[in-house]
Amino acid sequence: MLELRGIGAGYGRAQVLRDMSLRVGSGEILCLLGRNGAGKTTAMKAIMGLVPLMAGEVLLDGVSLGALPPHEIPKAGIGYIPQGRRLFGELTVAQNIEIGLMARGEGREMRERVLGLFPRLRERLGQRANTLSGGEQQMLATARALCLRPKALLLDEPTEGLQPSMIEAIRVVVRQMREEGVAVLLVEQRVDAVLDLADRVAFMENGRVVEEAAAEALRADHAIVDRYVGV
């Protein structure tokens, strides 16, 4: 279970997150919705320790991550799939996966598992990551994060700019992670893409979570969604 307790974070003196609280259970997909600038990406960076916490704490399975240096946070079991994928572009597919495996000392067995999830990557092991297509890059970014055997998985706009078949492949894997008991925190812009995948939805405004709802309720009543992300 991943829990944020009243965290504050920002860049320099510009505070973006204010007293933000959130809880993602194991085997649950929580989607973070909100307009641009609401603080969704910053929340993910704050969890990863890439943006320092000004207040509050982040807990994974009840253990506080706040005191850890940033490179120890993924080792606690958090896999991060950032916006724009951010692969190690000049390294090969195999080397990107290798870096994911090194983080928590996973080995050949985990490598086979992620390559089994994304067979396309196996055909491209020796290819440089920045020569892959957009969908393949997203697969690699996902595979790299799964190599950590994560307890919590952070996905920041994973379907941005992908064709429908690729989007489906990513969704299948995200569902599979839920079945395996991973706590999944998902940031998405497109509401319709989210509602049939997520279990719960949290709406963000001005750096805090202002409302939470079950995805099922939102499917029945679209009014709340329109209030927070409608144009």
Partner: peptide
């Protein structure tokens, strides 16, 4: 070598290196 891989990953993207457990400092 592994240490070379870690150095190149750090060179390419410092934040992602941190997010994958590489002790950048």
């Amino acid at each position: 070598t592994r240490i070379g891989l870690v150095m190149r990953a750090t060179q390419l993207d410092r934040d992602m290196a941190l997010a994958f457990g590489i002790p950048v400092e």
